[in-house]
Simulated assay, not measured.
Amino acid sequence: MSTDSSANHSDTPSAKITLTQNDDGWWTARDERRGLTTQGETRDDALDNLDDVIDAVENDRGDQPTDEELREAGIDPDDNTTGELPDILK
Rank of each mutant, 00 (worst) to 15 (best):
S2T: 10
T3I: 11
D4K: 08
S5E: 13
S6Q: 13
S6L: 15
A7R: 15
N8K: 12
D11R: 10
D11A: 08
D11I: 10
T12N: 10
P13G: 11
S14E: 14
K16S: 09
K16V: 13
I17G: 00
Q21N: 10
Q21M: 13
Q21P: 06
N22T: 12
N22A: 12
D24I: 00
D24Y: 04
W26I: 05
W27D: 02
R33S: 07
G35E: 01
L36N: 00
T37S: 13
T37R: 11
E41S: 09
T42K: 07
T42S: 15
T42Y: 09
R43L: 04
D44S: 14
D45R: 05
D45L: 07
D45A: 15
A46G: 04
A46H: 02
L47R: 01
D48N: 15
N49T: 00
N49A: 14
L50I: 05
D51Y: 04
D51K: 04
D52P: 00
V53G: 00
I54G: 00
D55S: 12
A56N: 08
R61Y: 11
G62F: 03
G62V: 06
D63G: 08
P65Y: 06
T66A: 08
T66S: 15
L70R: 01
R71Y: 01
R71K: 14
E72M: 12
I75D: 02
P77C: 05
D78A: 15
T81G: 05
T81P: 00
T81Q: 10
T82N: 11
G83C: 09
G83M: 07
I88Y: 02
I88D: 15
K90G: 00
